[in-house]
Design a binder for these strands. Structure first.
Lengths: 343, 343
DNA sequence: ATTAGCACTCTCTCGTGTTGAGTGCTAATA
DNA sequence: TATTAGCACTCAACACGAGAGAGTGCTAAT
């Protein structure tokens, strides 16, 4: 048996209907819903076929059909049109431009969740390949130094260093020169242990305290590679009865809170890239166990070489894929525009 | 009618029992539960009195009694003992000392929620009174400066400034001297508009660009006064049936997410201080509408003069007040110890 | 190949009766 | 006078069964 065009249309109709209502859909409904002019009996036969093919299922005998994961998958892969919508509101909202990255991210997350009625998440761009643009070591008082490191894209990092010994102003100056000449232009990735020991060698004569300072600098650069993920609209899951029962809701809420789990998703998205930058995980395809009853649409954004982050929309399997995907695409465009402007 | 000692004991017994079970408690239970050796009939009479006094209520005729808000209030005010418990685990956990403040805060929130089975929140210390210790303006490249400001307690702020005009190295040096001599030692509050215009006057000869730079510096100091609040254990509300129904759960989840609302709580706590630093809001006493079925226990911590934050535990009205309060008290002590050590 | 018709299945809802916990009241008791 | 035993009453919770309704699969007719 094969999936001819009519079966396809029926499947599409079933999914569309289910997306709206959330209820199993019966043959009679389809018979009227489509412009195929077929009786409910014929639809029933076709539906039996579709079920055998695995695209739809019955929650119980004598209920209507609901789409299976592979049904959704087919729908997403084939039926989705690229509509361009809602560009206006989005533009407006992004144009209240925020300098601070994290504010922007929070706003984007909020916008997405309000706009789609699903839960959204956004990860701050990670910057392994980000290059060091500027390093400075300054004295705050007798016992404390501050290290400021600025990377491409104006990513700023800083750490305080507690001194246990004297450190003369001349030594400080030398250290600054040393750091700048050796670290400038290097990517954060390239500053590894070997690099550090080499630096220490060069500074060797100045004694062991400099080793400590350099260690602190290295730490400031390498650390903090950890996840910064913002979520918004977690309460939207309560709008979908199939997710809102205690068990599931509790799991989902704690997943959104434990950003660690979401990081899995980010990792997966960043590595497993396709051409459009948009990926859809349906049901069990998701890398996060607790979301096996959800679907996730993710997009990767790239601010500049090596600075990439992930945006995700999490909702029920009957999510309006069409709308979500086009919303995300638009958002990407807007981000691009915004970023280009600022350059 | 008055609240004699026997009524008090019965009330206490009712509340204790209700805290454990979450079910309305009947007269027979109390008759056995307490060491008063009274029959259920007597208890019934007393309970009728207690109800008339407003300390307990019946969800419906012929159900047992549950504590009213004022019942809980009485309990909290009078019956609570200062037990010292669980100091060990807490100590251990805090001693993985974290340099970064926000990590520490997250960890504390997590610890509290895991430890109490309620939801916790913690606000980062706000620092109106925090004093400027160090200001530095450095050139990153031809078009960009970075401002680094370090306050007491090593609170670091920084902003990038985009230059549209040339700015000579000598001008930069002068600016640095100007900023440091005038701002050092001032509290963040004191740096207001008047202060800024005075600064601009002094720098006046150097033209309008310096005005811009100073504005940016002022912005960096005054802005970002906004809330940073971490929550943890939001999913714990699902453990308490009286909070877990869709309506309530949804509201609560979104409240925890919208940190803006929590900020109300922080404000309230910081202003309305009592001697112990610990406050308990029961039911409708809470400043946050969506938590009217909850109780909130808050504590204020102070790292040093003018750097105060709030910790809160949010749970059902039948929360184990005893445990929560003593946990918070211990935590305060630990924070004190930890902080003193680092000084 | 499609359709009408029919018997069948299963969920959902609603009403009913039953159970059990808990009460308030009254009369007896210490 | 304070306490207690006893009893009738109330109400939520649960289980049960009937009936409705939606939907199916199969068969026979078109």
């Amino acid at each position: 048996m094969q999936l001819d065009e009519r079966k396809m249309k029926i499947l599409q109709a079933i999914i569309r209907n289910y997306l709206e209502t959330g209820e199993p859909v019966g043959s009679r409904t389809i018979s009227k819903y489509t412009d195929l002019n077929l009786s409910s009996a014929t639809i029933r036969n076709e539906m039996a076929d579709l079920e055998e093919l695995g695209y739809i299922l019955q929650p119980h005998t004598s209920a209507g059909r609901i789409p299976s994961d592979s049904g959704y998958r087919l729908y997403v892969d084939n039926l989705m049109a690229d509509k361009e919508r809602e560009v206006l509101e989005m533009k407006e909202m992004l144009l209240e431009k925020e300098d601070k990255m994290d504010h922007l991210l929070k706003q984007v997350a909020k916008f997405l969740s309000v706009n789609t009625n699903y839960t959204s998440m956004i990860s701050a761009p990670v910057c392994h390949k980000n290059k060091v643009k500027f390093v400075q070591l300054s004295r705050v008082d007798e016992q404390q130094l501050i290290v400021v490191i600025v990377g491409e894209g104006n990513v700023i990092k800083n750490t305080m260093i507690d001194l246990e010994e004297e450190l003369g102003d001349d030594t400080l100056l030398k250290l600054n020169i040393l750091l700048n000449t050796h670290l400038n232009g290097l990517s954060m990735e390239e500053i590894n242990l070997g690099m550090i020991t080499a630096l220490k060698m060069k500074a060797g004569v100045h004694g062991e305290i400099i080793g400590k300072v350099i260690d602190a600098v290295a730490l400031a650069i390498t650390e903090d590679e950890d996840l910064e993920i913002y979520t918004s609209g977690a309460n939207n899951i309560f709008k979908y009865p199939e997710l809102a029962d205690q068990q599931r809701a509790s799991e989902l809420v704690s997943t959104f809170e434990e950003k660690q789990l979401l990081n899995k998703l980010v990792q997966e998205t960043l590595t497993d890239q396709n051409q459009t930058g948009i990926q859809v995980y349906i049901g069990n395809e998701t890398p996060i166990q607790s979301m096996k009853d959800c679907s996730i649409v993710t997009a990767t954004y790239e601010l500049e070489e090596g600075m990439r982050g992930t945006i995700g929309i999490i909702g029920p399997k009957r999510m309006d894929y069409d709308k979500v995907v086009s919303t995300l695409k638009n958002l990407m465009n807007q981000l691009d525009v915004l970023y280009k402007k600022k350059e």
